[in-house]
């Protein structure tokens, strides 16, 4: 009991400390003392990590998760992916390590990148329909299928679920059953198996998963984000006419100021080409995670802007000062 209370207190303290650090960073940034938005992003990512740990110690309704992950991006784009997602932080830290080793990243071919981008809709659909499929296939808890699913997507990483994949909260809510009609959206099969921690799957799958993500994101920046279904939402509405207003938080480009120097394309960690290719105005893309690296690196004052509603909250500046990121 005492330990639990202490744990809670510690979590709260970490959260509060990181939030304060974040607010301080924003203040410093607003005063123009700091020029690098990347550092600010790290602070916020760290704060978000703490917040997720904190939040996920409480039971969460699947519905809330769905709202957070699928509805909010309609207005705010994949801001979550760039600034809050703990798995993103994990990959960013690997990138920092790579930079320290002075090894260059590799780029995926543009066509493969676009294919993965489209694949995410399929993945999203699969994960959303999975409970229905499982129910149809086998009305009783199926150990074989359930194990594989649980081990791959969450099981052994129980405390670090959120760290390893933003899709996991979709699949494995920790509590709170949601039953609509006959389908149990709380994935009872999965939930039952989470306690299953022995067996060969428990060691092999997590190891493979960790190894793949470490190597993958060491070689390719933000490799998971390229097909992660959680970040699929924005484009879904953005593709229809009449929904062009939807992303309130978005990048905006001033055509005349752009010299097409290509910096924005090269620095983008998920290889978004739209910022470079689009002529001007609102950038319509669901690949962009709004990490603002392009805005930060664009050397033309006011060429790239981050806008919310119609208001500019961050824009490219004449940064020209030797970088201190070496």
């Amino acid at each position: 009991m005492v330990i639990e209370i202490l744990g809670e207190a510690l979590k709260l303290m970490v959260l509060a400390g990181l939030t304060i650090a974040g607010i301080l960073t924003i203040l410093i940034w607003k005063k123009g003392l700091a020029t690098r938005v990347t550092y600010l992003r790290f602070v916020i990512q760290a704060a978000a990590l703490a917040a997720f740990f904190y939040i996920f110690t409480y039971p969460i309704w699947l519905l809330i998760m769905l709202i957070v992950i699928l509805v909010i991006p309609i207005a705010f784009g994949r801001f979550f992916c760039g600034w809050l997602c703990p798995f993103g932080l994990y990959m960013d830290l690997i990138t920092v390590a790579r930079k320290a080793l002075k090894i260059r990243h590799r780029d995926l071919p543009d066509r493969l990148n676009k294919f993965l981008h489209n694949l995410r809709y399929v993945l999203l659909l699969v994960f959303l329909l999975l409970p229905v499929v499982l129910l149809l296939m086998d009305p009783l808890p199926s150990v074989q299928l359930g194990i594989v699913l649980a081990e791959v997507l969450g099981g052994p990483f129980k405390p670090m679920n959120i760290l390893l994949g933003p899709i996991i909260p979709l699949i494995v809510p920790w509590a709170g059953p949601l039953v609509i009609g006959d389908v149990n959206f709380s994935y009872p099969y999965v939930q039952d198996i989470i306690g299953y921690t022995s067996g060969i799957y428990a060691t092999i799958f997590p190891l493979i998963f960790v190894a793949l993500t470490v190597i993958g994101s060491f070689m390719i920046r933000r490799v998971w984000c390229r097909f992660c279904p959680t970040g699929a939402s924005l484009a879904v509405v953005n593709r229809f006419k009449g929904f062009k207003w939807a992303p309130a938080l978005h990048l905006d480009k001033d055509e005349e100021k752009c010299t097409k120097c290509g910096i924005c394309k090269r620095v983008c960690s998920v290889q978004v080409t739209d910022v470079y290719e689009q002529k001007g105005g609102k950038i319509d893309t669901s690949m962009c995670m709004l990490c603002l690296r392009c805005v930060e690196m664009c050397p033309y004052e006011g060429c790239l802007k981050l806008k919310i509603g119609g208001k500019t909250i961050f824009e490219s500046r004449n940064w020209l000062k030797p970088s201190d990121s070496d």
């Binding site: 120097c261 910096i263 090269r266 990121s325």
Partner: peptide, 28 residues
């Protein structure tokens, strides 16, 4: 001199790319 060399990661390859882009792409 209007266009700078914008380096993302200070690796040789990235610097070469940045130099290449600065001279080729930004030119009018």
């Amino acid at each position: 001199l209007y266009d700078p060399v914008g380096v993302d990661e200070w690796t040789m390859d990235d610097m070469l790319d940045a130099i290449g882009e600065r001279y080729l792409m930004a030119s009018t």
